[in-house]
């Protein structure tokens, strides 16, 4: 079996990739995917820690995170679709009417 550190390193790498993706990408859907990557890297860390401590608490937390992520998807995709219908583009470069 892999040592617990392997899972933690993987989750840290995924988290970093997700955060970088949010910062460099311009398409809201890709940004949103990166955010999901961040949340799921945290889930991986939770499960790994639960295993390390021999507890179930971490696994329960994962369910909460998944439920919340689903709620965020519902709101986020609805927003993106509405904006696409109004503007025929969702690129963040073109969403720049607010300035100052």
């Amino acid at each position: 079996m892999l040592p617990i550190e392997a899972y933690l390193v993987l989750s840290a790498v995924l988290f970093t990739l997700g955060a970088l993706g949010v910062l460099v990408r311009q398409n809201p859907i890709i940004i949103f995917m990166s955010i999901e990557l961040m949340l799921n890297s945290a889930n991986l860390a939770f499960v790994a820690f639960a295993r390390l401590h021999g507890q179930i608490d971490g696994q329960i937390f994962v369910f909460f995170v998944m439920a919340v992520a689903a709620a965020e998807v519902a709101v986020g995709l609805a927003l993106i679709v509405t904006i696409f219908q109004a503007r025929h583009s969702i690129n963040l470069d073109r969403l720049n009417s607010l300035k100052g």
Partner: peptide
């Protein structure tokens, strides 16, 4: 729309 999307992301 722009405010909502930015706030959400």
């Amino acid at each position: 729309a722009e405010a909502a999307l930015k706030y959400f992301l």
